[in-house]
């Protein structure tokens, strides 16, 4: 069910709001969210970018959501290098998700905010949740998001000289094009085949997932 706090259609559901719905609504009201949803039992609360830290601070101090589960992002884009494009056109944006929960009832709330694709910047959560440190570093290198105020926004997984932001939809799955696939280059030929056999057959030189025309499926 999706609704904004002022939306009256939310209560016109035949079965009435479920416990999860009323929980999501109360969280959304407490943090001053734009809207909320509980589709597929996943509580999502949409907040404005400038209210990001204040709503998560409220969540931790007043709503008891003390457990920091994860922070990540989704790159919504119609022009994708890998995989399928969205079925319906979407607004180009980076959606940042921070999942926090309590340790008594087992609630988990996904706070969501949208950032522009170019020059994405968001205030850091490291002052509120210590665990945000690594998650923000990961999101920064994978999606090119600048977490303002982060103490050490260096690359976490990738080598420091790595260029590009792999989880952006504009980033092609290049690794096997850049690094020769050992199965076709380094290894000596199978018995019965000459070592200098041609290695440029279509199936061998095009590992799955690199072609933009046929993305591996």
């Amino acid at each position: 069910m999706t609704a904004s706090p002022s939306d009256t259609t939310a209560t016109e559901d035949v079965t009435g709001p479920s416990a999860l719905d009323s929980y999501a609504e109360s969280v959304a009201k407490s943090v001053g969210a734009l809207s909320w949803s509980t589709n597929f039992d996943t509580v999502k609360v949409f907040v404005a970018t400038d209210k990001w830290t204040s709503s998560l601070r409220t969540a931790k101090t007043e709503l008891g959501l003390i457990f920091f589960s994860f922070l990540s992002a989704i790159h919504w884009s119609n022009d994708v290098e890998v995989g399928d494009a969205p079925s319906d056109p979407v607004d180009e944006r980076l959606e940042v998700l921070a999942a926090v929960g309590d340790l008594i009832e087992g609630h988990l709330v996904h706070f969501s905010t949208s950032l522009p694709v170019n020059g994405a910047a968001l205030a850091t959560l490291t002052g509120i949740y210590g665990g945000a440190n690594w998650h923000e570093r990961e999101a920064a290198e994978m999606f090119a998001i600048d977490f303002v105020g982060h103490p050490n926004l260096e690359k976490l997984y990738l080598p420091s000289e790595f260029e590009g932001h792999p989880l952006r939809k504009s980033f092609p799955l290049l690794s096997r094009e850049v690094k020769p696939w050992p199965g076709t280059v380094d290894v000596e030929g199978m018995p019965g085949t000459a070592d200098d056999a041609p290695e440029d057959s279509a199936t061998e030189s095009m590992p799955s997932g690199v072609s933009t025309e046929n993305p591996g499926r």
Binding site: F68, S69, F70, S72, I74, H75, G83, D84, A85, P86, S87, L97, A99, H110, G131, W134, R217
Partner: peptide, 23 residues
């Protein structure tokens, strides 16, 4: 945990893997 975003295709649009050891 798996945050699965589907756009109706044969594969996910985005799959966030929340693994325990990382945290």
């Amino acid at each position: 945990g798996y945050y699965l975003v589907s756009e109706g295709g044969q594969g996910p649009y985005r799959l966030k893997i929340r693994s325990a050891s990382y945290s």
